[in-house]
């Protein structure tokens, strides 16, 4: 990283590669069919918004769930550590698609047979797909992050916690002010990578009738029989979102105080 970015990008061979890619993009723009875009633009914006809130909500909720799971595995008594470990193993050992279908079709076929659920206030929501999608993605993120947080909590230097205790901090304050911040800081790069992985998991919810951005592209394909154009644009959109996630986490990483000292 000694040379500045713009100069690294201006090296002759990179300019040549960039020219080739620009030519390719130009060829795509001119000779492929893009006339369907105006028709589907409103639906695509709606789908994009649905993808983004599903990603954001499942990452936040999943992380909140991952903290107690990681803590239970790192320092909890056996009757908390074991269930947490089994939860992580099951989530990480089975495909997410299977989990989504299990929740949607399994629970979805069980709920209507239970009278008090049918009569409850929540029933209108439970008949839609998004609660199951959000639940499945949240549990999945919690399972993977629970494992990350287990290592993170263990790797906080013992001297830090002993020092906090020596100052007479109550246990909850130690957790809130010392233990959790340092654990999260150490795994920030991992969390950024896992958030990108979570983004790549979101199109799976299209299989349970949720119309997010991937489902929109599938609809274009089945309506118009145009195969490559919607898929290429979709790949470009996901690349863009992944780039934004990486940039956000990079900014957060730069803001937290550096390690050591």
């Amino acid at each position: 990283m000694s040379i500045p970015l713009w100069r690294a990008l201006l090296m002759p061979h990179r300019l040549a590669i960039a020219a080739v890619f620009a030519g390719l993009a130009f060829w795509c723009a001119v000779s492929l069919r893009w006339d369907w875009i105006p028709d589907y633009a409103p639906l695509a914006v709606e789908g994009l918004w649905r993808t983004l809130w599903l990603l954001g909500a499942s990452v936040v909720l999943g992380f909140l769930l991952a903290v107690p799971i990681g803590l239970a595995q790192a320092v909890g008594p056996w009757f908390l550590a074991w269930p947490a470990r089994i939860f992580c193993t099951v989530i990480r050992g089975t495909p997410l698609l299977l989990q989504i279908w299990f929740l949607y079709y399994g629970l979805g076929s069980l709920f209507p047979t239970i009278p008090w659920i049918r009569g409850s206030e929540l029933w209108p929501y439970l008949r839609q797909a998004w609660p199951y999608a959000l639940l499945a993605l949240t549990l999945s993120f919690a399972g993977y992050e629970g494992e990350v947080m287990r290592g993170a909590f263990r790797n906080v230097a013992r001297g830090q916690l002993e020092a906090a205790r020596a100052f007479g901090m109550p246990r909850l304050t130690i957790f809130r002010r010392v233990w959790l911040p340092q654990a999260v800081r150490n795994v920030l790069p991992t969390l950024g990578g896992e958030t990108v992985l979570q983004l790549k998991a979101t199109p799976l919810v299209a299989t349970i009738t949720m119309v997010e951005i991937y489902a929109v592209s599938s609809r274009v394909r089945s309506d118009t029989f145009i195969v490559y154009e919607p898929l290429l644009l979709l790949a470009l959109i996901y690349l863009g979102i992944a780039g934004v996630i990486v940039a956000i986490f990079g900014r957060i990483e730069r803001q937290v105080p550096a390690r050591g000292g």
Binding site: L199, Y214, L231, A235, Y238, L239, A242
Partner: peptide, 24 residues
């Protein structure tokens, strides 16, 4: 040039959902 092209390959594949790549 080979190194830059490989960097593009690994970056794109790791940022685009498997489902989309599988279809393409």
């Amino acid at each position: 040039i080979l190194r830059d092209l490989l960097a593009v390959y690994t970056t794109v594949i790791r940022a685009v959902p498997e489902l989309v790549l599988i279809l393409i």
